[in-house]
Simulated scan of single mutants.
Amino acid sequence: MVIDQDDLAHAYRFALSLCRNSWLADDLAQEAILRAVSTKQQFTNRTELRKWLFRVTLNLWIDSTRKSSAYTNRPLALRDLVDGSQRFDHKAEVAEELTALFAEMQRLPLKQRQVLHLRVIEGMSVKDVAEIFDMTDGAVKTNLSLARKKLRESTAIAHLQHSPRRQENE
C-alpha cells in the first residue's frame, strides 16, 4: 500500500491534537510516516494503515512527553488543524462557533479529547479507536459520551451568555 499526503495530514492532525505544538506535531507525523515506510508489516487497507499510524504517533508523543513536558502548554487553534489547501468559506458566525467549540474541546481531559478527535474528526470507528488506545469499546463510548456531554453543557452556557435577549436587557 502506498502512503500518501493524506496519510501524513491525518497523522499530523492527530499529533497536533496531542501535543499542541506545530513543530513537534510535524516531527511526530514525519517519524510515524518514516516508520510506516520502513516497516515490514503489510497493510490490507487504508483503515489498517491509519490505525497503525495513529498508534505509532501516540507512542511517539508519549515518549516525547517523558523527555519534556514543555510542548503541551500552548493552546491549540482551530486553524492549526486545517492544512493550507483547505479554506473556510463559512459565514463569520459559523467560523466563530466552530472556533468556540474547538476551544471547548481543548479543555476536555486528555483521554476524552483524544477519543473524540479520532472518532469525530478522523472518522474512525469505535472499534478502531479502542484498538489504538488499547481500551474496550465500552471505555471508548464512555469517553465519547462524557466528552459530548461536557461540550453540550459548555456550549449551552456560552449560548446563554451571548443570547440576543440577554444583550438587549444589558
Rank of each mutant, 00 (worst) to 15 (best):
V2M: 03
V2G: 01
V2Q: 03
I3T: 04
I3L: 12
I3K: 07
D4K: 03
D7Y: 10
D7W: 13
A9Q: 04
H10K: 06
H10S: 08
A11Y: 01
R13C: 07
L16F: 11
S17H: 10
L18P: 02
C19H: 04
C19I: 09
N21Y: 04
W23E: 06
W23G: 02
L24V: 04
D27Q: 02
L28Q: 01
L28K: 03
A29P: 05
E31S: 12
A32R: 03
I33Q: 01
L34Q: 06
R35T: 03
V37H: 07
S38H: 09
T39F: 13
K40F: 15
K40V: 05
T44V: 07
N45Q: 07
R46P: 02
T47A: 07
T47S: 12
K51R: 10
W52A: 07
W52I: 04
V56L: 09
T57L: 04
T57D: 05
T57Y: 03
L58E: 01
L58F: 12
W61T: 00
I62K: 01
D63A: 10
R66E: 00
K67E: 00
K67M: 00
S68L: 03
A70W: 14
Y71P: 05
Y71Q: 04
T72M: 05
P75E: 06
L76G: 01
R79W: 15
D80C: 02
D80F: 12
L81Y: 02
D83I: 09
D83F: 15
D83T: 13
R87C: 15
D89S: 09
K91D: 10
A92G: 03
V94C: 06
A95S: 13
E96N: 14
T99Q: 08
T99G: 12
A100F: 11
L101A: 12
E104N: 10
M105S: 11
Q106M: 05
R107H: 14
L108F: 08
L110Q: 08
Q112D: 11
Q114W: 14
Q114L: 13
V115K: 00
L118A: 08
I121V: 12
I121S: 08
E122S: 07
M124I: 04
S125K: 10
A130R: 07
E131W: 15
I132T: 06
I132L: 12
I132G: 02
I132S: 08
F133T: 01
M135V: 12
M135A: 02
D137K: 13
G138A: 05
G138T: 14
V140Y: 05
K141W: 15
N143I: 07
L144I: 09
S145P: 04
L146C: 13
K150E: 15
L151T: 05
E153S: 03
S154W: 11
T155I: 05
A156I: 05
A156H: 02
A158M: 14
H159G: 05
L160F: 15
H162I: 11
R165P: 02
Q167M: 06
Q167D: 10
E168V: 15
N169H: 09
